[in-house]
Design a protein around this nucleic acid. Sequence first.
DNA 1: CCTCTCAGGTTGTCTGCGAAGCTGAGGTGT
DNA 2: ACACCTCAGCTTCGCAGACAACCTGAGAGG
Lengths: 229, 229
Amino acid sequence: MTLDALRPNSLVDQATQRLREEITAGTWAVGTKLPGETTLARTLGVGRSTVREALRALAGAGLVQARQGAGVFVTATTPREDWPARLRQSAITEIYEVRAMLEVEAAQLAARRRTPDDIAALDEAMQQRRRAATGSNAEFVDADINLHAAIVAAAHNLLLTGLFEEFVPSLRRGLIDLLELTDLRSGDSNHGEEVHSALVDAVRRGDAEAAGSILRAELQQTLTRLQAV
Amino acid sequence: MTLDALRPNSLVDQATQRLREEITAGTWAVGTKLPGETTLARTLGVGRSTVREALRALAGAGLVQARQGAGVFVTATTPREDWPARLRQSAITEIYEVRAMLEVEAAQLAARRRTPDDIAALDEAMQQRRRAATGSNAEFVDADINLHAAIVAAAHNLLLTGLFEEFVPSLRRGLIDLLELTDLRSGDSNHGEEVHSALVDAVRRGDAEAAGSILRAELQQTLTRLQAV
DNA sequence: CCTCTCAGGTTGTCTGCGAAGCTGAGGTGT
DNA sequence: ACACCTCAGCTTCGCAGACAACCTGAGAGG
């Protein structure tokens, strides 16, 4: 029961919420000073310590910043996005779609930029995926995702790598569910071996077009399967 | 000078940091209860209100959650990724590269999924971009980004739309800088008019291949310009 | 074995106090 | 006229104490 989250019970939570709303609404622009603690306490009708804790909560969320002797200043008007939560709420098909966008292009970049180290990592991940063929669905999915992560890493774009990592938990859940539901691996426990092998080879050869199209076809196929479930 | 951020001046900040470190280090697993406020105060050598404010900061960051009468519980061991900050730190070329990945595929999806409303929005954004041709670099960039945002929106993937919005601030800065430095618009204040017009038409016709390749070429060109700066 | 009661512990909130620090007005010296 | 200094008034910071509200688990009672 998430009833706790619905009722903004404590005064601190209420004060935090009201202040957050005013900040996001733009009542105080970025860089401007908030009213003093005592003033806020009077206007909100709460004690000073309550205001202080509310401001601390906002500071923890990255919206304000206090400077002793000077005041509390607005540092941002938009709260930090909670992407993990957002990913949990999004449909698996949407997640997979974005993942496909990132990864197809990443594979092309990887084919152009891969270093010997990258190729070694790809081979190792490929081996691991083969070994995981005898394991559980979760183990197989983990190995599969690791291989894909290695491809993304070979694109040598740190932002992209971080973004992909953000997707991994949702991806993992979605793929495991897919395997549980569709029996895709039955009789073919090492599902997708040839495709992935071809993909790694394309990256090794530096054949960007091949890498991109192989991966696009594979991801597209899985996406339609996901949509069918 | 960002010296303020480096020295964890206040006791609350120090307490917050120490608690955060312990949580991320796994001293207390997710779901477990932290020691009581009075105990923490004694352990950390600070007053109870100081501990309370530190806990509020962690709560604001999504690491802990307090339940009156029960205690303070760990809700996560990894802090929320601060993607805006991460984007600010990333190189503009990396940002632009990822943006290109997302947007090229988004344009293809948009060509397949666009509704009459989407097309109306695209036309409106295109008009606005033409009008902004007489304005400042910042205004022109804003109009340009709005058009691209409209294309992404037409792909009808909420996750993708949110992701793109996250990129906008960094994109805006990078593009404005590029215009300031390269004089790209001098003598051609409505730079890229034909390309964008062709792009919108491709989406209107539902020609995914054309939309994708037009946008890829355009973004690639800008990317090489960015790398040259 | 189930239910109720309750003592002890915990967080929530307020108030008062003093310390530390910033800021701008106004004076001072050159 | 300009640069520098001083300082009063504001702000946040931190502590302590008090009490309220609430949760939890142990033990009494059915």
